[in-house]
Design a protein around this nucleic acid. Sequence first.
DNA 1: CCCGAGCTCAGTCGATGAGG
DNA 2: CCTCATCGACTGAGCTCGGG
Length: 227
Amino acid sequence: MAEAKIFAGPRVRRLRNRLGITQTAMAEGLGISPSYLNLIERNQRPLTVQLILKMASAYKIDVEELQGESGSVAGELRQAFSDPLLSGEIPAGEELAEVAELAPNAAQGMVKLYRAYREQAARLSDLAGLLAQAGHDPALSGTRLPMDEVRDALEGRPNHYPAIDEAAEAFHARIGAGEDLAGTLREWLKSEHGIIVRTLPVHAMPNLRRRYDRHSMRLFLSERLYP
DNA sequence: CCCGAGCTCAGTCGATGAGG
DNA sequence: CCTCATCGACTGAGCTCGGG
């Protein structure tokens, strides 16, 4: 029976990165040429037994570590991708194994995200069940987020103006505000209008929530406006 | 059994590209 | 300009197989 070849390029590369050495340095340590090590790292050449033994002794690692096993992560990824949410986007088993092998940390991250998503979906489902029992709208289900409920409630009020809402959303998209909306708005006011925004403590501006000084082009905001 | 042609594969060399 | 990574071409050793 022919011996199975070991293509462990990504593991070799991770080991090298962990050691903080270059291909040249590692190749020198292993007594091979840098280009050959490069071929190994890109899975263009298999790891020979001699090289595995050399690596194990030179870098004090376990031989098992080089042979490695990323099957469990690939299995969990497969489970995540079999979720109806991702129907039609199911990668082949080989592709999932490749992701788990080439980017184990990213794969773990995806698995964690999926677990968190499942947990939240289960909680939401429990909540919907409780609400239904209490006689509330059963439409609150796994496909409907609490944010949608809030949006519906706001849009149903008489002081809701869709044009303002749409303009605000368009503006939000235009300035590309991410997590830090307040920071982005400050930057935008400064760059577009030369207005500097300052936040003042409540005792400094007890009767006002905001004040604009036209002369100094400064907008003072009360601390109470912030959550 | 021996020998040589052909093949495979580990490994090298040198050029090149990318990035700091 | 230097370092590092990548690529294609090449070498040489070992193996296979068919013919004599």
